[in-house]
């Protein structure tokens, strides 16, 4: 077990090393999830809207990088061929998948820390709130990781491997009410917004930070939806991703 964790961590390190070697790029990538916070702050002058945007950034920092695991999966398999080298070695497929996941986590840490610090500076938050919001973010990250793995393992096209995560991050991150309140949308649109797992994650995190109030039913529905989405993506990823090619 210890050996497997060790090899997973080194695979994660290897995958994230290009960014760790160039911290400026790492920081710049982190800003991707924080940009909407800046715009919200500029146009609303701070307050609750900006705090909701900060929660959105916390939730999406991990989710975006999870989705971008598609690129790691694709490029390690079809471009660098490192996956083939690792398949023909004692490295386990679980270590490999866990390693690539760790890599996405490392990349998301700067934006996650910045967003959390800004939120703590903007309003008093309890440690428990932070913990619960982090659990929500991690759950969304896992579902996005599975989505990324499913995309990376399915596509044989370098353009799609690059563009699909970006298109999805736009439709799952910027369009649904993640950075802005759900209540901003017209009531007839709100059910459609709730089709996105990111909306549920944002609603739950905002609830735990005390920015919106959700009933028990909404909380249960939110968690159920996220877990079901994760399970579905895990199923697709497991079906599509092969360690030994068929």
């Amino acid at each position: 077990m210890r050996k497997r964790i060790r090899e997973a961590l080194y695979i994660g390190l290897f995958d994230s090393l290009p960014l760790l070697r160039d911290p400026a790029i790492l920081l710049l990538l982190s800003m991707f999830s924080l940009l909407p916070v800046l715009f919200t702050f500029v146009f609303t002058g701070g307050g609750s809207m900006t705090q909701q945007a900060l929660v959105g950034a916390i939730v999406l920092s991990l989710a975006f990088t999870g989705l971008f695991s598609a690129q790691s999966v694709y490029f390690n398999k079809h471009w660098f061929r490192f996956q083939d080298m690792l398949v023909a070695s004692p490295v386990s497929p679980a270590s490999y998948a866990f390693g690539l996941s760790v890599s996405t986590f490392i990349v998301s840490v700067p934006s996650l820390v910045i967003a959390l610090l800004l939120l703590v500076a903007a309003r008093p938050v309890q440690l428990l709130d932070v913990g619960l919001a982090m659990v929500v973010s991690l759950a969304l990250w896992i579902s996005m990781l599975f989505t990324g793995f499913a995309i990376g393992a399915s596509t044989k096209n370098v353009r799609r491997a690059n563009s699909l995560p970006q298109v999805l991050s736009f439709f799952l991150g910027f369009i649904p009410p993640v950075y802005y309140p759900l209540s901003q949308l017209p009531p007839e649109i709100q059910p459609f917004a709730l089709l996105a797992p990111t909306t549920h994650a944002a609603q739950l995190a905002k609830h735990y930070f005390g920015l919106v109030s959700l009933g028990v039913n909404d909380i249960v529905i939110g968690w159920t939806y996220m877990l079901a989405f994760s399970a579905l993506m895990a199923y697709v990823a497991l079906k599509r991703a092969h360690w030994v090619d068929p």
């Binding site: 080194y10 090393l17 290009p18 660098f80 080298m85 070695s89």
Partner: peptide
């Protein structure tokens, strides 16, 4: 195994590649 058309990661050094693979191999 040396796969066909394998390429190193352009932003990493030769040392980074071989050293990290040694670590991955335990």
């Amino acid at each position: 195994v040396v796969p066909q058309e394998a390429r190193p990661q352009m932003l990493l050094s030769a040392w980074d590649h071989i050293y990290t693979f040694c670590l991955i191999r335990g």
